[in-house]
């Protein structure tokens, strides 16, 4: 089985998808480390999973719902308490291009 190599180009792409700005040094480092890790976890390809269904709901509960009721939440002050910047009750961020 060939190594699941993660090239620096891929690392950069993954970095963008992850919203992480990576330095050149980090890109190189992660490329090597992630290649090692992926190569290791690739061991799973040897496991015959056949028709085994994926497991994602570990405690086997279903239909857990909430009544449609309104309850008090945070005040505006509490909501903005940890904000980096606020303006007249809004969170403020540098201009985002209109999508």
């Amino acid at each position: 089985m060939p190594k699941q190599v993660l090239t620096e180009k891929e690392v950069k792409h993954i970095g963008k998808l992850s919203n992480l700005e990576l330095s050149e040094k980090e890109t190189q480092k992660f490329s090597a480390e992630l290649t090692d890790i992926l190569d290791f976890v690739e061991n799973l390809s040897a496991v015959d999973t056949g028709e085994t269904p994926a497991l994602s709901n570990i405690n086997e509960k279903t239909n857990v719902f909430r009544e449609d009721e309104v309850r008090p939440g945070l005040t505006q002050k509490q909501a903005l308490k940890n904000a980096k910047e606020a303006h007249k009750g809004f969170f403020k961020v540098p201009a985002i291009l209109k999508e």
């Binding site: 909430r66 449609d68 009721e69 309104v70 309850r71 939440g73 005040t75 505006q76 909501a79 903005l80 007249k88 009750g89 809004f90 969170f91």
Partner: peptide, 20 residues
């Protein structure tokens, strides 16, 4: 609905003070 999809905050947001 009265409340939001995944929490109990009011879903009636039209013309309400921001972040209240």
């Amino acid at each position: 609905t009265k409340s939001k999809m995944f929490c109990s905050c009011s879903a009636d947001h039209f013309g309400v003070e921001p972040n209240t």
